[in-house]
Structures are given as C-alpha cells and as structure tokens.
Amino acid sequence: MKLVYFASVREAIGLSSEEYDVPQDACTVGDLVARISARSQAHACALQDLSRLRFALDQNMVAGDTLLGTAQELAIFPPVTGG
C-alpha cells in the first residue's frame, strides 16, 4: 500500500510518501497506523496521538475504525485548515 503524509505529519516523519506491506492482521485504518508507528522513532512521534490525526483511504476521508478492504492508498494528516 502507498502511504502518503501531509503537513506536520510529513515533516515529523521526514517523507511525503512510502510503500508499505500491510500485515495480514491489520484490518482497520487504526490497526495499520499502530503498525506504521513501529517503523521508526519519527513515525512513533508523528502518529502517537490518534485524536489529532485524520485519514483518507483512496482519497476519501474515513474514520480510524474503517476497514482497509482493497484500498491502495492511505493518507495520514492533521485536521485540515484551508480557506
């Protein structure tokens, strides 16, 4: 799966995107984010507070308990601040 990061999450991790093999036992967005946190200290720091993160699966905003299904892209970012 392609992981995409934006804004403060992108800066904290130090990458705008990366490829990730989704573990068999990761069923939801929240499960997957917990596994991604374990990749490095920077990932752990960027992803520690789920309440301050928002997610998009294949470019649609979703909640943390959404099933991953066959999605190809997960985006992780802080609450949006456009306009």
Partner: peptide, 20 residues
C-alpha cells in the same frame, strides 16, 4: 471547504519562523 477539503496552512512570520 474549511472542514472537508484537504488543505493545510502554515503561517510565516517576520522573524523568519513558520508555524502550522
């Protein structure tokens, strides 16, 4: 748009610092 569209804003200040 303010709550649904994926934009992120960073403010730049006169002293050269920037903050999300």
């Amino acid at each position: 748009l303010k709550t649904d569209a994926p934009f992120w804003k960073r403010a730049h200040y006169a002293d050269g610092t920037a903050q999300w």
